[in-house]
Nucleic acid binder design. Structure first.
Lengths: 230, 230
DNA sequence: AGACGATCAGTGATGAAGTCACATAACTTC
DNA sequence: GAAGTTATGTGACTTCATCACTGATCGTCT
């Protein structure tokens, strides 16, 4: 209720397009299709053709990968004012998506048509810059995911996510969804959460996790290393 | 000795630059610094500033990430005719590298100065296209790495790598290096290899692995699923 | 209200993979 | 050929993944 971005009028370009010239922005506004997507909508799935380049005006969209085994893992989220880099890849290499995008919060999206994307890419330096920047950030963030999955302990990662995604100390999420978040199995999450509960860090209800001791939660996996007190 | 790419004369643009106009290519050739890097050289390490955009003319360069824990994992390889996308990210977001690049085979590299990179990005559509394409491919390949690390069995991944990186049925590599290749620990690789040896798939010597049964090796982890014969 | 189906969570058993702490073995150098 | 260095082998133990269930909670239909 309190944190609506001021882009509803759509006359101010989002931060990503700060360097975009007025003319291109106007053109973009005219040609792009504006979509209002309610939470839960699947924007695209694996194998889908690219419709255009989505610019998220506000809201939040989650992009996750579906492995061959059927396992899933969240790759990143696109928040208000950001572009979808996967779609860029998709548009430029004529490929199709290998991932899935799901709207998490009601979102407004400008879908920039492929032709216009290509033209702006050639003509508007500000547009180009925005696209490349979004790309760069994503490359970095994907590398972070790799490091997480490959090297970090799960209890620590879980604790981190809980703190990250909490609102007012609580989060309405199923163990299954948390498992996707971390790229692991539901049972594993359940067991770890139960352990957190035993230690008095959280309280568990069906579909709801309440954080009791945030400080201790942020220390999970840290004290593990030595096992003795300080 | 037998497979040198024909770019030593440097007058034919590499495939990635197929759409680059002649003028820009000439300019690039004049302004770029040409480096000859022997195998083993570290091109850049974590925290290094970006010197420019490297275009690998021939040879092969490995890019790997160093996790906070000190663990490493190979992200991808840049072969003859390809650009280094991490450096693009680096140049455009003014950041520094988080990874490390090591020359695997003697390589020749054109280091395109930052300023020229930016200018060509703005002026030459073919250049832009090449950069974006290399970017897109890397994004896809990083997603593949994530899937590998998160969901696939290690014995299967190891067998795959052995076949991939073999030359004449043999590969001169230490278990440690294979571990980095897969983002795991040396001991784990040693044990799996020993198991492969017991099953008669490979022969092990210090620093050398000889593939005995390639067919069976490519089936590792496939027959595992059902455990019965077909 | 009670019954049914669906989703969500808990748990044991077992195997795969990561970690720690070593013991050997093989190469290098002098 | 003795010493130092690098590569490999292994046991013990923890963490994580997978399989196969059971029990709990919720919505809804009648």
């Amino acid at each position: 209720m309190s944190k609506h971005d001021p882009h509803h009028a759509q006359d101010i370009p989002p931060p990503a397009f700060a360097n975009l010239d007025r003319r291109s922005w106007d053109e973009l506004r005219r040609a792009a299709q504006r979509l209002t997507l309610p939470a839960g909508t699947t924007v695209f799935g694996p194998g889908d053709e690219c419709q255009g380049l989505p610019l998220v005006l506000n809201g939040e969209i989650r992009v996750q990968m579906v492995g061959a085994s059927g396992n899933e893992i969240v790759l990143y989220r696109i928040k208000g004012g950001e572009l979808c880099p996967l779609s860029v890849a998709c548009l430029l290499t004529q490929g199709s998506h290998q991932s899935e995008a799901v709207v998490e919060e009601d979102s407004e999206v400008l879908l920039i048509p492929t032709v216009l994307t290509e033209r702006l890419m050639n003509e508007a330096a500000g547009f180009r810059q925005a696209v490349l920047e979004s790309y760069g950030q994503r490359l970095q963030s994907l590398m972070l995911v790799i490091e997480e999955v490959a090297f970090r302990r799960l209890d620590q990662r879980l604790a981190e996510r809980l703190l990250e995604r909490q609102r007012d100390g609580r989060l309405a999420i199923t163990h299954q969804d948390l498992a996707v978040e971390l790229g692991t199995a539901r049972e594993v999450v359940s067991r770890l959460l139960k352990e957190f509960e035993r230690r008095g860090l959280v309280n568990l209800e069906r579909g709801l996790i309440t954080i009791i001791n945030a400080t201790a939660l942020s220390d999970v996996g840290v004290a593990q290393a030595d096992k003795a007190s300080a």
